[in-house]
Design a protein around this nucleic acid. Sequence first.
DNA 1: GCGCACATCTGAACGTTGTCAAGATGAACT
DNA 2: AGTTCATCTTGACAACGTTCAGATGTGCGC
Lengths: 209, 209
Amino acid sequence: MNKPAPVESRPYHHGDLRRALIEAARRILEADGPAALSLRGVAREAGVSPAAPYHHFKDKGELLDAVAHEGFEALAVALKDAKSKAVDVKDAMASLGVAYVKFAGANPALYRVMSDCSRDKDAMPDHLHDDEDSAYCTVRNTLVQAGLEGATPLDLELATVAAWCAAHGLAEMSGFRQFEGLKKELGGEDAFLRGVLEHLGMFAKVMKG
Amino acid sequence: MNKPAPVESRPYHHGDLRRALIEAARRILEADGPAALSLRGVAREAGVSPAAPYHHFKDKGELLDAVAHEGFEALAVALKDAKSKAVDVKDAMASLGVAYVKFAGANPALYRVMSDCSRDKDAMPDHLHDDEDSAYCTVRNTLVQAGLEGATPLDLELATVAAWCAAHGLAEMSGFRQFEGLKKELGGEDAFLRGVLEHLGMFAKVMKG
DNA sequence: GCGCACATCTGAACGTTGTCAAGATGAACT
DNA sequence: AGTTCATCTTGACAACGTTCAGATGTGCGC
């Protein structure tokens, strides 16, 4: 047997089953959707017995957690990328929002696993919220740079949460067929997304007193 | 046998199994959460055999659709109620948002079934979107009354969608433990919700050019 | 009132799933 | 070499969604 040489203290029998399982899960996810993802199916796809995964994940849920974790990392990358491509600082915020929604649209099954895991734990992943260069901080920093220096820290935090919630809501609803007319009228999905995000202000302006 | 007399052309053997099944499902849902809801369990709770539901619903999914439908009706009632209780027209919009999120918080399992069904069909229920006094129209009308008469119809539509997305996003995320600090700092959940909704404007203001 | 047709419910079955316990297998360390 | 231990397999179990053949009762035409 010529295994690829145990570079780290990880591989044993299979090489790196944990990794293989996560990748098999992502493959099944994008191919057949979240409803078709079974632990047995993942094991089958990875070429091991149905009980093998239990030596790497305590649960089916823990496998999904791992998949979701990778999804959130990819999301953070997509957001950073979008911000770096923004034409100016006023555009950065909208770009972030659009990038968020488009990530969800491009990886619908993955995004669904991500949000399901979050809701099951009543929390977004901590690294996403706490780390210095987390997605959460990226949004907050962008808000500051775009002209919210005057705001109190509390304002800033609330605005960040507001932005995140709006992006998540739009991500889950932007595919609704009832919005097809609006998209056509505006000339595409991007215009629709930007339009909705911009009109959050109009909506918010009529509130409070 | 003294059945409650066939008021309509509905009841046969059981009386009204369809209704009984939906109620059994809602009972299980609120007691044990969405993950514990099985078709067999619902049948058991209703006192019938595991195959009985298939004469009233083609699928487990169709049962959930029916449950979700009732949920959306309850939501619409809650929104109307909140609007009628608003102190002034400027307060109505915020009240609607808070009512939406609090409905989700008060019926978490039901709300989850509702949004899962929506996502599976890539659509919100049509009656919620189209009917004259639907929740969607309630939001739009409120926007008009609160001072958006000048806006174009397109603006109005986009603002309505924006409001809905924001409410949905906040509904799904407001329970996250990462926000507990903010809630405490603001003195309660209501203040947190209102705060986030109001800061949607601050977030939106820094967008576009 | 009788019998027919049909909606409704039951019982048993099939394939699939998540999970577990007991044993086989092979790598690393002594 | 032999021991130890993580890893993987085999086989089993209960629960699930779903289907089908058959029992059961309801309403309708006669």
